[in-house]
Simulated assay, not measured.
Amino acid sequence: AQVVVGFGGYVSTPAYLAARRRGIPIVVHEQNARPGLANRLGARLTPFVGTTFASTRLAHARRVGMPLRPEIATLDRAARRAEALDHFGLEDQRTLLVTGGSLGAKRLNEAFAARVLELSAAGIQVLHVTGADKGFAVPATGSGARYVVIEYADAMELAYAAADLVVARSGANTVCELTALGLPAIYVPLPIGNGEQELNAADVVAAGGGLLVPDAELTPSWVTGSLVPLFRDITAVDRMAAAAASVGERGGDQLLAELVAAAYAARRPGR
């Protein structure tokens, strides 16, 4: 190995220590806002430390963002919107995307399933990605807006291209994809673990590009009482979109690659 790059899994610790012992350059990348033990150790062994979020506290940290799939990083939402709407069977109108990721989110699914008719009657078109084996039957909406349920999106970039506002969990990848694309969002952090999902959304929420709703407060009443008025306020949603884009980073892959190249260039002579 000429450079060791670690992302903080438990196997990173012995790799960092072995690289240090052999004089091999180390690069650390921390995807979450709250770093784990392995990366806290690794960051003390190298000046080449990249973080996803500006608020992450880690020795020698510089923000490089999250390396994203090219399909996301290069997405032109406006150019692919018509294709996206056709792909999901949606009308050409403003659209709300609800997603709990590939595994789904029980809280989101139940709250929105209970308000299908109300959202449709309010003229809010919804694309709801429920997660595998978590789909539900949509009641007839008559002349109201469409409510489309799918269990899995094999082309998530098209779901983003169709969306004007998103309701989602706040895993690091989700937050980074949405901000890179300038998509405003309601973030509902997973209420377990060490609270990292709430911290992941902190920067974009502070910038005004998203709202944070605790899991317990994401209820059917919240959907109709809070979400519907926000979605209808086009000016507010547009402001949120601009704020989200201001903290997003599409070039995380290139910036991380440059950090690796810099670590290699700075290696000790003879190594």
Rank of each mutant, 00 (worst) to 15 (best):
A155K: 13
R115W: 05
G36A: 09
D133P: 06
A78M: 08
R250A: 13
A172T: 00
R63P: 02
S143F: 01
R169E: 01
T95A: 02
A242M: 04
V11H: 12
L117M: 09
G50V: 01
R22K: 11
R146E: 09
A82R: 15
R57Q: 15
P220V: 03
D92V: 04
A38G: 09
A43L: 02
V167L: 06
S246L: 03
A59T: 08
L117D: 12
M240H: 00
E249W: 02
Y16N: 10
S226H: 14
I26T: 08
D164N: 03
A153D: 10
D92R: 14
R57H: 13
T174Y: 11
T179S: 08
Q93K: 13
F136V: 09
L255P: 02
D76P: 14
V49N: 08
L96T: 04
L165F: 06
T74I: 00
V237A: 01
L68D: 03
L218Y: 03
P191A: 14
G142T: 05
R40Y: 00
G182S: 04
L181Q: 06
A145L: 04
G248R: 07
D154R: 15
A263N: 07
Y147K: 10
L211H: 13
T46G: 07
G123V: 10
A1V: 12
L108Q: 09
A105Q: 05
G209Y: 00
V4Q: 13
A155S: 11
A43R: 03
T219V: 06
T141R: 14
T56V: 03
S226T: 06
G6Y: 14
L211E: 14
A113F: 00
H87Y: 15
G6M: 14
I186W: 07
E157S: 07
V3Q: 01
I124L: 14
L58Y: 09
A38L: 02
D238E: 15
A168R: 00
A265L: 11
P214W: 01
E83G: 05
Q93L: 00
L259R: 07
T235H: 12
K134Q: 12
T46Q: 04
C176T: 14
L17V: 13
A185Q: 05
